[in-house]
Design a protein around this nucleic acid. Structure first.
Length: 598
RNA sequence: GGAGCUGUGGUGGAGAUGGUUACCAUGCCAGCCUGUCAAGCUGGAGGUCGCGGGUUCAAGUCCCGUCAGCUCCGCCA
């Protein structure tokens, strides 16, 4: 029997009650977090999005309210009117923000009943994520989830405030747009009015924001949904949100420093943290050499050390042959890990195997020499050189991978992070920002047998490298930059190509023929002929940004209604088959035989 | 496309070597209880072990397949 809200509209939020309110008569609206029935006295913890306060139902105060309270259960929706009183001495609850007071209910309306929820609505619950996702509306009732969404709100608010103050305009771009080559797989939307043709959902508003620069908008931003039909990860969802930014008449330094100000402003406004600027700038090459990653976590050391030159001289065949065939040998000094058991080292070997490494050579440094199955292939002098190169001391464990540079980087880069986790070297509260700069413009794709853009095909090469585009494209540096925070790629951008001749050259390098370029990007090439200012910008992954600020392990926790790893929504059961008529209208036929029962 | 982990009442977990009514906690329901706060006490209901097949006299437990969730590789300009 749900009752009408009537005049019992809240006068204050549960979490806001303090000793200041003692003596006041207040009206609370919220959910029953917990009911404790003592027979002659009932306590109800009432919860709204601000917090919890204890409501007392006593027949001495109001018998009708008390009797109604006996029927109340968890998650019932209530309106309560009552007097705020200081709790009797000895019954204060220090764990509750409002624990010094309680509300004596003089009137209760049960606005709605509730089924027993499948899990307790509280912080730190231990429930299968699938259950949480199926009942996401209940999951989001939990205070820690609400806090993340509030933080997300404050983050976007701070972004908008900062950019507005700096003269940026928030402009929307189309969701129904055009499929383009390069990049991720598109989500396609069939066109009803144009049989056999499709829109694509944007992977990013890249081209539109550049066109807005041609339009003379000068400074643009957008908090915008992007879509990529690729496999998911803890930090990758098929639809995610970017803070997208573009500016005219700027160079790289101008963009980076303004973005540093933005980051500092947002962290100050949301978390109250002071961020030191400018951020470190680390060339891509150096990041790969020292950390084996273009998104290194700089909160700890464990840097990769190149011993290719030393390894080429040893009798150990695995090392020598790798070096001979143009590979690399690099190592990490896991300080103080000399006590690792054989089993632990085997685990690490298996770990690097995931990244293509065929093995993990190891040496334990002891007072009286080196303990290692491969030590016998090395002379004393060679061992000494390796030790000094890695700065090894007794008690250290040295780990080596010999392979193609990509495999060495991937495996040791990952091993570095794994070791840091195992050794607890990562300071959880540290925020370590770094710009990765001087990316190559293109890299050779073995599968496609052509050069592909490392960033995207609109990234400007460094001016003096332009001539190299014809001769040694892989040596051309791009005016591109990524912002990395604690090993997570927060965002990336570049100064764009704004000259038609350079853009055409770029298309040529990546093997995009004149005709295809014309067909796919003709409008862009045309636009570039009408007075395009030099421009550049960046896009940040908002979900990842919030994830780090909220110290969560997955962006699913920072998105109200996320998808599972197989890109489904467990709550609304999407995707789903559609009606035959819908398909017919869209001029579509599926090649799949529907499963039984569908 | 691949590797790994997980799947037992609503929820979280336990169930050596295959063997009688599948255990514990919590939640739920009922009763008692006027100061609790993840209240307490007493009693009760609730699962056939993700699904399918196989081995066996007998399977939650072994085998095969499959589905789902998560982590990772590939992929993600």
């Amino acid at each position: 029997m749900a009752e009408a809200l009537g005049d019992l509209m809240r006068t204050i939020y549960c979490g806001e009650l303090t000793t200041e309110n003692i003596g006041e008569t207040v009206i609370l609206n919220g959910w029953v977090n917990k009911r404790r029935d003592h027979g002659g006295l009932i306590f109800v913890d009432l919860r709204d999005r601000t917090g919890i306060v204890q409501v007392v139902f006593s027949p001495d105060v109001d018998r009708e309210a008390f009797e109604k309270a006996e029927t109340v259960r968890s998650e019932y929706v209530l309106a309560v009117k009552g007097e705020v009183r200081r709790r009797p001495e000895g019954t204060e609850n220090e764990q509750l923000k409002t624990g010094l007071v309680e509300v004596y209910a003089s009137e209760l309306r049960i606005l709605n009943k509730a089924k027993t929820p499948p899990f307790y609505i509280a912080e730190d619950i231990d429930v299968d994520e699938a259950v949480r996702l199926k009942y996401r509306y209940l999951d989001l009732r939990r205070p820690d989830m609400q806090r993340v969404l509030m933080l997300r709100h404050r983050t976007t608010k701070a972004m908008r405030d900062f950019l507005d103050a700096k003269g940026f305009l928030e402009i929307e771009t189309p969701m129904l747009t055009k499929s383009t080559p390069e990049g991720a797989r598109d989500y396609l939307v069939p066109s009803r009015l144009h049989p056999g043709e499709f829109f694509a959902l944007p992977q990013s508003p890249q081209i539109f924001k550049q066109l807005l620069m041609v339009s003379g908008m000068e400074r643009y931003f957008q908090i915008v949904r992007c879509f990529r039909d690729e496999d998911l990860r803890a930090d990758r969802q098929p639809e995610f949100t970017q803070l997208d930014i573009e500016m005219s008449f700027v160079d790289r330094e101008r963009v980076l420093s303004l973005m540093e100000d933005l980051v500092a402003y947002v962290f100050k406004e949301t978390l109250g943290k002071d961020i030191q600027t400018p951020f470190t700038r680390l060339p891509y090459r150096e990041a790969m050499d020292r950390y084996g990653s273009d998104k290194p976590d700089l909160r700890f050391g464990l840097e990769l050390v190149d011993i290719t030159d030393l390894a080429g001289e040893v009798e150990f065949k695995v090392f020598a042959s790798v070096v001979q065939s143009g590979g690399q040998v690099k190592g990490i000094n896991a300080r103080g890990c000399g006590s690792f058991t054989r089993r632990e080292i085997d685990e690490l070997t298996e770990f690097v195997g995931n990244y293509g490494a065929k093995g993990l050579a190891w040496m334990i440094v002891q007072e009286d020499g080196i303990k290692s199955p491969i030590a016998k292939f090395f002379s004393e002098e060679q061992l000494g050189n390796i030790k000094s190169r890695l700065g090894a001391a007794p008690g250290d464990l040295l780990l080596f991978v010999a392979d193609r540079p990509q495999v060495v980087a991937a495996s040791l880069g990952a091993l570095r992070v794994e070791l840091a986790k195992r050794l607890d070297l990562i300071k959880k509260d540290e925020l370590n920002f770094v710009w990765i700069v001087d990316f190559p413009l293109v890299e050779y794709d073995e599968e496609e047998k052509r050069y592909v853009a490392l960033h995207h095909p609109f990234t400007s090469p460094v001016e003096e490298d332009i001539p190299l585009m014809d001769t040694e494209p892989e040596k051309v540096r791009a005016q591109a930059y990524d912002l990395v925070l604690n090993g997570v790629e927060l965002g990336g951008g570049s100064i764009r190509i704004h000259r038609r001749d350079v853009q055409e050259k770029m298309f040529k390098v990546i093997g995009l023929g004149d005709e295809e370029a014309r067909e796919k990007f003709g409008f862009l090439l045309d636009a570039f002929e009408y007075g395009t200012p030099p421009h550049g910008g960046i896009a940040f992954g908002l979900d990842r940004w919030v994830m780090i600020m909220a110290q969560r392990d997955t962006i699913r926790d920072c998105i109200a209604f996320p998808k599972t790893q197989s890109a489904t929504d467990l709550m609304i059961q999407a995707p789903s088959p559609v009606d035959k008529h819908q398909l017919k209208e869209l001029h579509l036929k599926t090649a799949v035989v529907p499963r039984k029962g569908e």
